[in-house]
């Protein structure tokens, strides 16, 4: 794999299941009913489908990075802003693009813009990630601006 500014990260797609939200509500001890009770969502005027936990939306982006990097240890940092809701039944697509490659010959990292889009809908989150590269992956450092 050769990596340089402009390299697109392979997308990670998943259909968001209400059952998964219930599992995460228990594991995270998150009592907010918008994640498991459609009636509560409707009562708040937020539609009729349960709303995914924000950290799970973040996890889809991590999944995309893990699949791309091939080793979770190579993911060094991730920062995201939450922009919109993801709902049960939505199909979401996590993607990214390398914006720069930096470092010396042995220790190089790729800076990436990353995002999660609802298919046919809004961007749910956006941010940036840092991923370590193997020695032979960087196709060239990004020149300083």
């Amino acid at each position: 794999m050769r990596v340089s500014a402009g390299t697109e990260l392979p997308v990670f797609e998943i259909e968001v299941r209400a059952a998964g939200m219930k599992t995460m509500a228990v594991l995270l001890r998150d009592p907010n009913p918008i994640h498991f009770d459609p009636a509560a969502v409707a009562a708040l005027g937020m539609g009729d489908r349960v709303i995914n936990q924000g950290p799970t939306n973040m996890a889809y982006v991590v999944n995309m990075l893990v699949a791309w990097a091939g080793d979770p240890a190579r993911i060094r940092a991730l920062k995201v802003r939450f922009l919109d809701n993801v709902r049960g039944g939505d199909r979401v697509v996590a993607g990214g693009v390398v914006t720069s490659v930096a470092g010396d010959g042995r220790h190089q990292t790729a800076e990436c813009d990353v995002w999660l889009d609802v298919a046919g809908g809004p961007r749910a989150l956006a941010g940036s990630a840092t991923v370590a590269l193997e020695a032979d992956e960087a196709a060239g450092e990004t020149p300083p601006k």
């Binding site: 998964g20 950290p55 889809y60 991590v62 999944n63 990075l65 080793d71 979770p72 240890a73």
Partner: peptide, 16 residues
């Protein structure tokens, strides 16, 4: 399982 993780190395926790 709930977040649809790719397969991880044995014993390694998901980065989340």
């Amino acid at each position: 399982d709930a977040i649809g993780s790719p397969t991880l190395p044995a014993g390694v926790a998901h980065p989340m």
